[in-house]
Design a protein around this nucleic acid. Sequence first.
DNA 1: AGCACGCCGACT
DNA 2: GTCGGCGTGCTC
Length: 803
Amino acid sequence: MKVASVIVDVPAKQTDRAFDYLIPSQWLETIKPGMRVIVPFGPRKIQGFVTEIKAESEFKKLREIIEPMDLQPVLTYELLDLGNWLTENTLCFKIYAFQAMLPAALKAKYEKKVKLSAGVEPSHLPAQLQEAFKNEEAINWDDALNNGLVPILQREAAKGLLEVIYVVKERLKKKKLKYVIPLLSSRDLEAAQNGLPPKAEKQKEVLKYFVEHSDPVELRHLLSLLNISSSTVKALVEKGFLAEKDMEVYRDPYENRTFTRTEHLLLTEDQQRAMVPILDSIENKLHEVFLLYGVTGSGKTEIYLQTIQDVIEKGREAIVLVPEIALTPQMVNRFKGRFGNLVAVLHSGLSAGEKYDEWRKIQRKEVKVVVGARSAIFAPFENLGIIIIDEEHETSYKQEEMPRYHARDVAVERAQKNNCPVVLGSATPSLESFARAQKGVYKLLSLPNRMNKRALPAVEIIDMREELRAGNRSMFSRKLFELLKERIERKEQSVLFLNKRGHSSFVMCRDCGYVMNCPNCDISLTYHKVKEQMKCHYCGFESHVPSQCPECSSDYIRYFGTGTQKVEDELGKILPEAKVIRMDVDTTGQKGAHERLLKEFHEGKADILLGTQMIAKGLDFPNITLVGVLSADTMLHLPDFRSSEKTFQLLTQVSGRAGRHELPGEVIIQTYTPEHYSVELAGTQDFDRFYHREMMMRKAHHYPPFYYLALITISHEELITVVSATEKIAAFVRSRLSNQAVVLGPAASPIPRINNRYRYHCLIKYKREPELNKTLKAILDQYQADPKSGLLVSIDVNPFILM
DNA sequence: AGCACGCCGACT
DNA sequence: GTCGGCGTGCTC
C-alpha cells in the first residue's frame, strides 16, 4: 500500500481527477485518506487531498509525495464520499468540493521563489543581483517581476547558479502562548526553594507558586500575578526547575463573555407532541426528515435544544444551521447557555483564525454541537445524531459559487449516511419543503400556537396610493406616523423595516428620465452617500454624481430610492424627539457593531430600530410593540419566480418581531399593491392559503416544487457568439431530454451584461430526466475544455437566483 | 491554473 | 541568423 491517489489543487477540467503518487517509506504509516499533502506537479509543488491508498497504480512513472501537511486527516471518510456526491450533484470540480468542506485557513498559499544553488555565493552573481541576495537566501518571484529582475534571474538560472523553488505555505498559524511548567515535584521544588541564595526572593516566590500549583501557567499571567520580570523565570529555567513551553490555545471569539446557564424549559403540549417523533427517530437511529412548522414565537428553539440534549446523552453529535448567525447573537446565547463549552460556533463574523480554531474543536471531538451558517453542514463529526436547519426557507442556505450546493440537500445526504433525523424549522416553510411534507416525504410537525398563548400581532395594510391621493407625499403613512408617536410617548419600542433590495438608490433625471447605467454592465449604478459616488455592484465601476443630466443637460437630476439614511433623515424631521438606531451595511460594517447596536436597542437606548433585511430575524425584545414595513412590494417585482414567496416570508417574519412578550403588538405594512396575495395573506398571517395560491401559480408556470430547474448561463464578449452558442446548447439539451422537459432559451439574462460580457440563459424545467446529468456534464466537458473560445459556461442545478 | 515546448515575425 | 510573441498540451 504505497501509492496514494491525490486530488490536486488545480481547478481545471483537465486536472479534475486523481493523480497517483508514491508514498515515501517514512510516511507509509502516516499518510491516510483525507490528509492534505504537498506533491510535485509538473515543475511546481502544490497541495492535494489524498482520497485513496492503494498497492499499485496504472501509471508507471510515479513521483513521490513531498510531505504530509496534516498529522490527522482533515476529511473523514464520510466527507470524502460527500465530496464525490457534491461533485456529481452540483457539477463542480472535486477540489472545490473538498475546499468547501474545510475552513479557509486550510487552503494552501503558494510562493514562487528564486534561491542560490548549493555552494553558490552572492559574489558569483552579476552586480545587479548581489544586493538582492546579500541578506536573503531566496527572493520572491513576484518582487523580482516588479523590479524587472526576471530576465537576469533566468539567465543565471540557466547557468545553474540559481534555481526556482516553489513553496507551499499554510495560510494560518496555530495560536501559541508561552506557558511555564514545573519540572520537579512539589516536594523537590520546596527543597529547591530552600537551596536558593537568600537574596533570590523573587525566584523563591515563583517556586512557592509552583509548590502550590503544579499545572502549567501562562507566562504573562504568572508575571503579572507575582509582579516579576521574565528574567526571574528564565533564571529558574536555566537552573532546571522550570521549563517554558509554547502551548497551543484557541482563539476564542466568546472569550470575554459569560453565558448564563439555562435549564430545560417546561414544554407546552404542542411542543411535547412535536418532539416525540424526533426523539423516536433519534432513539431508533432512523433517517427521517421533519418539517417543524411553527408560527413565530411558538418555541421551536426549545425543541432544538431538548432534542440535542437527548442526542448528546446518547453520545452523538448535532449540527444546527442558522441563516447568518452573526445576525442572531441571541441564538448563540441560547446554545452556549444550555450546552456551555460543548458548542462550537461557525459564522462569517469570525476571523479566519477563529473559524479555524472552532473547526478544530469539532475535529478533535472537544465539542458535541456546532451552531453555524451554511458551511457548518460540513462539520467533521463522525457520529451525527441530528441535523437541524432553522429558518429552513432562507435563501442563504444555497451557495451561489462553486460548489453550488443547498445546505438542506447536503443535510439530508449526511443524515442518511448517519442514520439520523433532519429537522427543518420555519414559520414560513419554503414551498418545496411544505409540498414534500404534504406528500409525506417529510414528516410534518406543527406548532400552531405561540408559546405564551400571545395572539399574533394585529396587522394592518396601508395602501400608499391612498396616502398619495390624500396629499401625503412622505414615506410614512398617517397611521404609521400616529402609532410611532404613540409608542414614543408610551416609552415602547418600534422597529421600522426597509426592504432595500431591488430598490437601491439610483440617479435619475426628472426631466428626461435618464438613469445612470454602468458602462460595463447593463444595470443601473447605485448611489453611495458616504463617498458621494455612483458605484456598480457587479463590476465595481465608480463614477462621480453628475450635477447635470448627461442627456438633456437638465439640472433636475437627483437620486431616487429610499435608503435607510434617507428614512433616518426624514424621521429626524417629522419625529425629532425620537432616538433612532440605524442598522444596515454601513453601520454594521465593523466587527461586533451589529451586536453592539442590538444591545443598545435592547437596553432601551433608542425608540426606533431602523434597518434592512438583517433585522427581520431573531429579534426578540419584550418592549417592541410596533413593527412598520415601509414598502412591502419592493421585492415583489423582481424577475424571480420566488418573489411572492420571499415577500410573504419576509413580511411574516418581520411581523413576528412584535408583541412576543407581555405587551401586545401591532404591525403596519405599507404597500402600493395591497391587492397582491402575498401582501394580503401576510397581513392575515395565513400561510396555508398563501401556500395554495402560490402552488397554483407554480403549477401553471412549471416552476418548483412541480418541476426541478437547471440553469445554464453562457457569457462572452461578443453578443452574436453568446447567442449562437446558447442556441447550440439549448438545441443539444432539447435533443437529449424527453418531451416532458421544458427547455427555455436562448434568452438574455435579467442582467444581460456584466463586466463587458454578454450573458444568455438556457433554463431547463423538468420532472424526471435520467439523462440530464450526463447531458450537462457533456456541455461542461466541451466548453470548459477549451477556454480559448472565450465562452464561459456555468451551470446551476436547482438555482435560487435566476440572474 | 501554471508552465514548457514549439513554431512564426522583427531585430542585433 | 536569434529573441521572443503566445497557441497547444501536459501535469501522476
